[in-house]
Amino acid sequence: MATIIVNGTAHEVDAEEDTPLLWVLREQLGLTGTKYGCGIAACGACTIHVAGQPVRSCQMQLRDLIEGDEITTIEGLSEDRSHPIQQAWIELDVPQCGYCQSGQIMAAAAFLRDFPEPTDEDIKASMTNLCRCGTYNRIKAGIKRAAELS
């Protein structure tokens, strides 16, 4: 049994210590907003925040957590979709199928904190999550809109 803190709550989880956080979140805690897309750190669908930093959770194992690490998933980004990224996403209809969007939003939220006034070049250089539906133009517009809303 390991204890992890997710979205402000401590949970006891029953999983091997080499289990990726992605699967701990999805299968042990039922937090299915974090998605499986590749399992090899290539797509970003599984992006969460660990101690405030964006992390591809398919690559971080339970044993990699340092005691006291706070994990934030898409479910905990805000109570009511009020994070500026979420608001901008809704205002601009960014998602298509939506499958990659939890990861996009978590990556964008961390990016916006570091780049409160992002340029196109900043966004292009930092947003590396994949979207097969091809929502990139709107993700870019959404981040800029979120910067205005912040």
């Binding site: 907003g33 998933t73 898409i74 805000s78 979709r81 979420q86 809704i90 998602p95 939506g98």
Partner: peptide, 8 residues
């Protein structure tokens, strides 16, 4: 759109 932005 809404439920694609909060993981639900």
């Amino acid at each position: 759109t809404a439920d694609k932005t909060d993981g639900s």
